[in-house]
């Protein structure tokens, strides 16, 4: 095992998959110069033909991926910031998601979409929003987000090898998070659609991902001192979603807090809450409680601190379901 950052783990996934398969290539804006370090040094190894910078023209940029995937290639599209995917939203959600199904399922689109997402930089709405819930709303697209360097490398490799379109953003708040990954040359993937119990516990189940997972783990440490045992589940994938792991945990804890860094309205947290109510109502001793962003545009500057899910808010939610 080695210790590397999450952003380096993502880059290793790109490198290994691009060496393995000539049809894998990246398209984005300023990825050669590496505006975010997940693409640092790639152009030197793979050239401008495979590390493709486009003008500031998101539809055209996404079109490179869409058309090339229809031609049988395996593109990775980098939107830079998640919110920028909205500039070509119809292509990357509706058109992409329906392609396989609506045509009678003879061919799929092996497109990987990625972007930096999330709060923490105080950059405001368009640079701070989450997109996993929005993409999960659209049928035909897998959606996942890693929480650790190990998961990041394994999940990005799985996404690139997947024959379906996959949106796999990464949270800017944990880009420098360090963690253990296998030695270079040891090939592994983390399959999409499999949740992971990041901490075992017996009193309450907390579902959290990415930066929020780090918050939840801290809260669990603190509450342990009071004798409250939290089980922390990282969904890792939103589509397909591993509901069974959550239900199994609830057999033990009977209480669920869902932390989701997304607006409350139409959020993935709502989906989980509804799924659990429909499939596991009898397992619940308290209503499912959500920790989400309030329905307001994410403010920038210091005000961001008031609306993001914090360890304090997660702790309060846990105490509420245990009350």
């Amino acid at each position: 095992m080695r210790t590397i950052t999450l952003i380096d783990a993502i880059r290793e996934a790109y490198q290994e998959e691009m060496r393995r398969d000539e049809d894998v290539f990246m398209v984005g804006q300023d990825i050669r110069g590496a505006i975010f370090p997940h693409t640092k040094g790639l152009v030197e190894e793979f050239g401008s033909d495979r590390i493709v910078d486009t003008p500031i023209a998101e539809s055209g940029m996404y079109g490179v991926a869409l058309g090339a995937a229809q031609e049988g290639m395996r593109p990775i599209v980098d939107f830079m910031f998640g919110g920028f995917s909205y500039v070509t939203f119809s292509e990357c959600t509706v058109t992409t998601g329906q392609y396989h199904f609506l045509h009678g399922s003879p061919r799929s689109l092996p497109i990987v979409m990625t972007a930096g997402v999330g709060t923490g930089q105080r950059l405001a709405n368009d640079h701070a929003m989450s997109i996993h819930g929005t993409f999960a709303h659209h049928p035909g697209i897998k959606v996942a987000m890693p929480s650790t360097p190990y998961d990041a490398k394994g999940m990005f490799k799985a996404a690139i090898r997947d024959n379906n379109p996959v949106m796999i953003p990464w949270h800017m708040g944990i880009m420098m998070l360090k963690g253990d990954v296998p030695e270079l040359g040891e090939d592994y993937v983390v399959p999409l659609g499999v949740a992971d119990i990041k901490r075992e516990g017996s009193d309450v189940t907390v579902m959290a991902n990415s930066l929020q997972l780090q918050h939840a783990l801290k809260v669990a440490d603190k509450l342990q001192e009071e004798g409250i045992s939290c089980e922390i589940i990282d969904p890792r994938s939103f589509v397909p979603f591993d509901l069974d792991t959550v239900l199994k945990s609830l057999e033990k804890t009977n209480r669920l807090v869902v932390v989701d860094e997304d607006w409350e309205s139409g959020s993935f947290a709502n989906t989980v809450s509804a799924n659990v109510m429909e499939a596991g109502f009898d397992l619940l001793d308290a209503p499912v409680t959500r920790v989400t962003l309030p329905n307001m545009p994410v403010p920038g500057g210091y005000m961001e601190d008031y609306i993001v899910p914090t360890p304090e808010k997660i702790e309060a939610a846990i105490r509420k379901v245990l009350a």
Binding site: G63, A65, G67, A68, Q70, S90, T95, G104
Partner: peptide
């Protein structure tokens, strides 16, 4: 959809031919 004849789509969104055109040309 006639992928073997390289006709990949009829988009209900007018103008949605232009973006993948770049990708077909790139490929």
């Amino acid at each position: 959809h006639y992928p073997d004849d390289k006709v990949y789509q009829q988009s209900g969104f007018i103008g949605h031919n232009f973006a993948p055109t770049v990708g077909w040309g790139y490929a």
